[in-house]
Nucleic acid binder design. Structure first.
Lengths: 164, 164
DNA sequence: AAAGATTGTTGTTGACGACAACAATTGTCA
DNA sequence: TGACAATTGTTGTCGTCAACAACAATCTTT
């Protein structure tokens, strides 16, 4: 075994054609294959890393991007509404907005209708910045296509449409 | 609109058929739809929560389950080998194994071939426990089928097979 | 007006990934 | 053979993220 895989790994799953790419040397997963959650988790890690790298030059992470996108499409939303829409806790959104507001991309406007809540808007530089972010996000999306195939990506979006 | 969606949300995306289920009241996502990463993230959250709930009675989380499964299928592996196979850092695996070893599901055996490394094995109760975990995991997998459809799940596994 | 609910905020906890450092051990190669 | 590099498990720190709990300010309801 050239490598030092400790010892008597029972070499199940020997000659079943498609070998696992670069991940493992020889280790079998057996029961783990066929678990949707495991595949989805690994894919999600890959896709986030590519997103972070592709949007690295502008220092925007996936969650930040989703917040900016929703605010851009629905100006005036409250923090509660944004949090609920994106499945983020409002406690978490506070920090996200703190960061985005420091960067002058978003502003919290005190709502007159409900003095508890803030109406969220993009700033002018925030608008132009988001436009650039969307270009980079589209480039990331092309990476996904290159990774899993164009029609596979389309099927995936169709299958998971309900979770959007 | 009955709800208190703060105010003047510009009501784009009005009557396009399939409304978003229970997630939002009325907020449009626009550009976020069509992003694979967003759909995958939401799905992954759903699937993990169902896994955690379904395996809640035995207090096993997805990562713990994957570790037990790999050790069960490949007894004698080193920590390094397990970590590499699952894409976990070996530093993180230390804590996972500490927990699983305290619960008497796994044991670290000092390897004679390489005295730096530990050969990982399931204990006898670990074997029987894993058998039960697999039954519950199969139940969870049926929940996934019920959620997205049987053949959609199969397609998803096929599309993401390379990430396993 | 009083009681209860909602909004934004602060704080804590725990799972998780990324790094860096370290001792013990093994591998290499000059 | 003996010095140097690499590997393995471990410990620790840092930052992200989800889940809660508590709180003051402000609606909403009755």
């Amino acid at each position: 075994m050239t490598a030092s895989a400790t010892q008597t790994a029972p070499r199940k799953r020997a000659g079943n054609g498609a070998a696992p790419r670069e991940v493992a040397d020889d280790v079998g997963l057996d029961a783990l294959v066929g678990h949707a959650g495991y595949a989805v988790r690994r894919f999600q890690i890959w896709i986030f890393q590519d997103f972070i790298k592709t949007l690295g030059e502008v220092d925007i992470r996936p969650t930040q991007y989703s917040v900016l996108t929703v605010i851009g499409a629905n100006p005036g939303l409250s923090q509660m509404a944004v949090a609920k829409r994106l499945g983020i806790e409002r406690a978490r959104l506070v920090h996200l907005l703190d960061s985005l507001e420091q960067r002058k991309l978003v502003k919290r406007v005190k709502s007159k209708a409900d003095r508890r809540s803030h109406a969220l808007h993009l700033t002018a530089p925030g608008e132009t910045a988001l436009a650039k972010f969307k270009l980079l996000a589209a480039e990331h999306e092309r990476h996904v296509e290159a990774k899993i195939g164009k029609e596979n990506r389309a099927q995936l979006l169709r299958i998971l449409a309900d979770f959007t």
